[in-house]
């Protein structure tokens, strides 16, 4: 069991680094495109639709891959009344249940997201911007994001079942990389 968990944690740690870096770059792109759009309009009187329309289109690729990664650091908002009352075994059971729910929800949304991406690929719909590209490239962020979520939820499940992280076992480097 331990080698499997260790490998999964390594993979997830790599995913986490990539996804956070991509997210940071998307935010930087948003700031620069919006600022650049305002600046060119002010300086030349010419405003480009792309500066207005592109940044919101980047949002799904910022949000959904990260949503799964944040399961690891517990950054999501949750009611932690019950976890604070439970200890030891009870807490592990609860964490396993939460992970299972996340896996189930993740699987549902991977399928739904894939359906949506396929639909728009089949229709051949492009973005309504001056700079056109197929809109399913953006819809792809849903199945990808929720697949990432499943991967992190499986890690949480295995850790809860084995109690490895309680005993300090496993390579948990990066577990607390995201602190808010």
């Amino acid at each position: 069991m331990r080698p499997i968990i260790t490998t999964l944690i390594r993979i997830n740690t790599a995913i986490e680094r990539i996804v956070i870096a991509v997210g940071a770059l998307i935010v930087a792109a948003m700031v620069l495109i919006v600022f650049g759009g305002a600046l060119t309009r002010y300086a030349t009187g010419i405003g480009f639709g792309v500066a207005v329309e592109l940044p919101p289109m980047l949002m799904p690729w910022l949000v959904f891959p990260l949503a799964g990664v944040l399961l690891r650091s517990g950054s999501h908002i949750a009611v932690d009344f019950l976890p604070e009352k439970l200890g030891g075994g009870g807490l592990r059971v609860l964490r396993a249940v939460i992970a299972l729910i996340a896996i189930g929800a993740g699987a549902t949304f991977v399928i739904a997201g894939w359906d949506a991406a396929s639909l728009f690929r089949d229709i051949g719909q492009v973005t309504e911007m001056e700079w056109e590209f197929p809109i399913w490239y953006i819809y792809l962020s849903f199945p990808v994001g929720f697949a990432v979520l499943i991967s992190f939820a499986v890690e949480n499940l295995l850790l809860a079942l084995t109690g490895l992280d309680d005993t300090g076992g496993g390579d948990s480097a990066g577990v607390h990389a995201v602190t808010e």
Partner: peptide, 17 residues
């Protein structure tokens, strides 16, 4: 700051979605 913005945005927008 960019990383923290990405994280906070994801938390908020995942709920919005």
């Amino acid at each position: 700051a960019l990383r923290d913005t990405a994280v906070t945005t994801s938390v908020i927008f995942a709920i919005i979605a």
